[in-house]
Design a protein around this nucleic acid. Sequence first.
DNA 1: TCCCGTTTCTGAACAGCGTTCAATAAGCTT
DNA 2: AAGCTTATTGAACGCTGTTCAGAAACGGGA
Lengths: 203, 203
Amino acid sequence: MARRSDHTREQLAELVLGEAQRLVEAEGFKALTARRVAEAVGYSPGTLYNHFKNLDDLVVHVNARTLELLDGELAGAAPTGDPQADALALALAYFGFVERHPRLWELLFEYRLGEGSELPRWFTGRIEAILARMARVLAPLFAPEDTAGVEEAVQVLWASLHGIGSLATSGKLEVVTARSAAQLARSLVVHYVGGLKAARGEG
Amino acid sequence: MARRSDHTREQLAELVLGEAQRLVEAEGFKALTARRVAEAVGYSPGTLYNHFKNLDDLVVHVNARTLELLDGELAGAAPTGDPQADALALALAYFGFVERHPRLWELLFEYRLGEGSELPRWFTGRIEAILARMARVLAPLFAPEDTAGVEEAVQVLWASLHGIGSLATSGKLEVVTARSAAQLARSLVVHYVGGLKAARGEG
DNA sequence: TCCCGTTTCTGAACAGCGTTCAATAAGCTT
DNA sequence: AAGCTTATTGAACGCTGTTCAGAAACGGGA
């Protein structure tokens, strides 16, 4: 029996999250089972349920770490003030992350939680922090009071990048063509933001 | 024991697909289990494996039906010759379908097949037929010989619509705001196609 | 040092999953 | 009616998430 003095509560929770992350990166999220995580950390399956409500809860916490990673990646794309160039830099940084951590990205965005599991507020808050990065670079395209316009554009770009990543990681884009996800992202950002600029120029 | 004269091979396969579809529409794709489908059609679980290679195979066939439905929906959006208006009509028809059949759409695009299951060619062919609809309405925006340009634009729009649908059906967009998927699709199409037009005007 | 209350961990158990396959039943042909 | 072919069965295997009574380990006081 693993003795509880081996790790403090928090150490064990971190250990579990780390092994879960490793497991997903190595074998995809279908390998993330209670028994395999338990084996990896050297505790019994039941112990996991003393630290996480259920597997969905564990997944959410792994995903929180992934969001941290992603946010760090996006922080490397420093805004220049040109919305089109900055949005493109964010999009390319995003796909740099997807390419480096495809399976963590899958767990973050493709894993469907069970019916009983809602995303906690602290989690959606972290997503909003990432969206705020995009909002900042797009803001110059809109009138200062038009926050709804910025929000809409951010959501369109965010969802669209997500779609490109989704089809790319599931192999459903390569089936149709070998064109890379990053190239599609470039086309999306260049022309969508171009369309926004054109609309603003006319209005 | 169900007697084999109750249904011909094809009747039984159709019966299975119909009940599987009903099950998904009613309870989501997590309810699509071999035992429940078997119970619904009045046969034993093992019988399913005489008609389908495995559950993934069954899912692919249900999805083929869904693609049929979707294609029929999109056929209702008759092209007028104006790329922007026609692409928008296709996108709105697409989300009309997503709203009417969210769970079939989930099974089609969010269900991940197992490692051993590749999408059959007849299936990807049907998807390409749908993409061809979008290609036809976008073609006027490009030089006649620029098929690569059309292809890229089609894939960008297809993947982006997918992303909007994905975040919408998983509830990850409503969390941030109540703005509807269709409104985001409208913004995407209007400004992306607008950007394409602007780029063509300059080039 | 011993005891006791508290916390933590265990591992067997339960219900469900996809899938396989020997045995069985049903239908067709002669 | 007998034989042959095909379809169906349902038990079985190894997996899954999750629960919980019992056991083990710890911390504090006597």
